[in-house]
Computed example of a mutant assay.
Amino acid sequence: MSTSDLINVGLSEAVDDKLAELKEMGVFADKIDGYRFGASLAIAQGVVPGDLVKRVNLYNVGSLDPDQALRRAVEALMPSALEDTTVYRLIERLADWGVNELYSQAKAGEIDFAALLDQADEKHG
Rank of each mutant, 00 (worst) to 15 (best):
F113K: 04
I91E: 01
A108D: 14
L58P: 01
L52Y: 02
A81V: 00
A114N: 04
L94I: 09
M25D: 13
E24A: 15
N60H: 13
D118F: 03
G10L: 03
V9P: 00
I7R: 13
V61E: 13
V74R: 07
I43R: 01
A115M: 11
A95C: 13
R71E: 15
A120F: 03
G109Q: 09
R55M: 03
R89T: 07
V27E: 12
E24I: 11
K107A: 01
G26N: 03
S2P: 12
G125N: 04
L11P: 06
F113N: 05
V48A: 11
A20V: 08
V87Y: 03
A76V: 06
I91L: 04
P79Q: 05
Q105R: 15
G46Q: 10
D16T: 05
E122W: 07
F37K: 05
M25T: 07
K31S: 15
A108G: 14
A44K: 06
L117N: 08
R89E: 10
L90K: 05
A69P: 02
G10N: 09
L117Q: 09
Q68D: 14
F28L: 05
Q105K: 14
L77Y: 04
L64H: 11
K31D: 13
G46E: 08
L117G: 09
V47K: 13
A115V: 02
G62E: 10
L90F: 04
D16Y: 08
D121M: 12
Y35G: 06
A39I: 03
L82Q: 10
A73M: 01
P49L: 05
A76W: 09
G50E: 08
Y103G: 02
D30F: 15
K23Y: 02
A106C: 03
V56N: 00
N60F: 06
V27H: 07
G109V: 10
K123R: 14
T86R: 15
S40Q: 12
S4T: 14
G98R: 06
L77K: 10
E21M: 08
G50T: 06
E110C: 05
N60K: 10
D84T: 08
D33Y: 11
L90D: 07
H124S: 12
N57K: 15
S4I: 14
V15A: 07
L58Q: 09
V61C: 14
G62P: 00
D96F: 02
V27C: 06
A14P: 00
A14S: 02
E21K: 12
Y88T: 01
D121T: 13
I91D: 01
R89Y: 01
D84Q: 07
W97K: 05
P66S: 14
A81C: 00
D121E: 13
Q45H: 05
M78G: 00
A108V: 06
L11M: 08
E110K: 14
T3S: 11
A42P: 00
E83Y: 01
